[in-house]
Design a protein around this nucleic acid. Sequence first.
DNA 1: TACATTTTGATTGACGTATGTCAGTTTGGC
DNA 2: GCCAAACTGACATACGTCAATCAAAATGTA
Lengths: 341, 341
Amino acid sequence: MKPTVHDIAREAGVSLSTVDRVLNGRADVRPKNAERVKDAVRRLGYVRDTNAANLARKRRYKFVFVLPEGPNHFVDTVAGAVREAAAAQVTDRADVEIVSVNAADPHAVVKRLKSLDLGQLDGVALMVPETPQVRDAIAHIKSAGAYVVAFVSDLPNSRCDHFVGIDNFSAGQTAGALLGRFLRKETGCILVTSNSMVARDSIERRYGLDEVLLRDFPKLRALPTVEFHDDPQRIRDTLTRATATHADLKAVYSMGSGNATMLEALRETAAGLDLVVVAHDLTPVTRQALVNGEVDAVIAQNVGHLARSALRVLRAKCDDAGIYESQEQIRIEIVMRENLY
Amino acid sequence: MKPTVHDIAREAGVSLSTVDRVLNGRADVRPKNAERVKDAVRRLGYVRDTNAANLARKRRYKFVFVLPEGPNHFVDTVAGAVREAAAAQVTDRADVEIVSVNAADPHAVVKRLKSLDLGQLDGVALMVPETPQVRDAIAHIKSAGAYVVAFVSDLPNSRCDHFVGIDNFSAGQTAGALLGRFLRKETGCILVTSNSMVARDSIERRYGLDEVLLRDFPKLRALPTVEFHDDPQRIRDTLTRATATHADLKAVYSMGSGNATMLEALRETAAGLDLVVVAHDLTPVTRQALVNGEVDAVIAQNVGHLARSALRVLRAKCDDAGIYESQEQIRIEIVMRENLY
DNA sequence: TACATTTTGATTGACGTATGTCAGTTTGGC
DNA sequence: GCCAAACTGACATACGTCAATCAAAATGTA
């Protein structure tokens, strides 16, 4: 039988009230008694029954996910995963709200963050670029007693409680290693595309790519990153030029967001070229491309895992419970047609 | 506010007792009233608070994991993951016991299964080969009211409640696809090793491999599977012979269990050969081999996920709750040095 | 109609914890 | 040694559900 507060009280020779005061960090307990209670807890190996505690407190957790708005396949799949994870949690006393913000506009982001009802907010998961204003807003939320986790994109300079996401440098390395192995013994160059390099994610991936190519696959050369800012024509032109200029073009690495545009351009301009294609993020678009054989491999993160992990971490923080690191480690997944799920 | 049984009683115009009787499927409720209760549940969107319910019935779940005994790196990592997942669950009213059996001896397995105290057992996760005797034992456990999930290895002919693990055919396909892409444009043959082909897992992986190679990579030829039954000399001989006989040997595919032996032999006999090596199962051995560059990729399943998934599924069955398929889907992971975790 | 049977409702006490009240006991300062 | 302040304990109520009891009501049967 697991010990209860009653057992602790008996063991420590104090009353239930005192045990309660110690356990919940309330005032008015003499240090000596507090010590005896803590001792008893340790001796009996007491762990608070969080479920019973939540029941007694009528506690419900309120969490908010702040996601970028606007049409984006990857964000859509993330949002879907969050909704699903949230649905699974309503039985478990947690209410989750998703708010969309124009992530490109720091002012709008901050405005939305400020408008959150901090009074009854337990935690926030933030998927927005880091700016000084955002950093301040996070500090403000935290000072109100809510927990903040960086979600998908890290916010290294803000004092978040946790980061739920992958290491994009390693992701870039993984892409590099895949390309290198897929092009074993071949010499040539790799076209690298991104919708925008302002996102730190893309920059980190690029670094990872370069590092691995330079070190392990010197026969491969990655061209400068082409940013196409949602402009289909731009990527089409670039591809056409690249195939013309670089006779030894062997592969394309699409660093995420804008895969659809990139693939379309690829279909039009490089149909017969037998290029190795590696892309980021598993979305309906890349999924289809994998099935069609247009993409050889996708570097992905499990969006369901992302969402659930963020929720688990926020809860653990609220309950002041420990985190199981190994469970919260988000994997850099390599998805090919054969292990597509 | 979430509705409670009280709300249901009021809405349905019956007493709490009646609601309780309906909710818990007890007898003595007139169909008409049962209907009214169910209607009210539907209208108010009531979902039972499992935690409060478990609290009230002092319920603790008792689960047993049956794992193969004997020295095996993969089973060790699985056992470790189960222990860790179990530790996380003690707070959550579940007790988990791990029992080891000599999986190769059906008689011993059955004997151990029969010795389980079915009276206070809620569920079993079984990682053993399927035999007619095992099938009967499973039926017996199920008839006692406990749930059974096949763990890691499927038991397709036993009427288990669930299978927690990967599709080994797809895993073999994935290996084939990796090998094919790593050996793009090359012609040659692949050495396939397994500790033993009696395990259905290896057979399925082999089928998957062959299918992909035949269809997508006809220039690659997989040699007949070499089984080495824990005999280091055997694999060493085979490798030596293979390198001598097949000048075009390009790759090795180790289908799991016995990676250490295989790698050692590889180190001794094929040091300078620049072979592509793909292995199964992430263990200390393969992990080290990835870091060393001796293995190019490992096909893995996340053992932590396996363990937690099995526990979640068993609980869901006990609570008669739904399963979130997407969460329980075990991924076929591709691990390289760069995305090693 | 009388009686047996089946359903129903009201009530109560758990489960492990939280929280509040209030009277009672220590303690520390002087 | 006194008094206020700091601490403590006993008790009650609650959270949402389960399980049991018993009386009351509805229904079926003869």
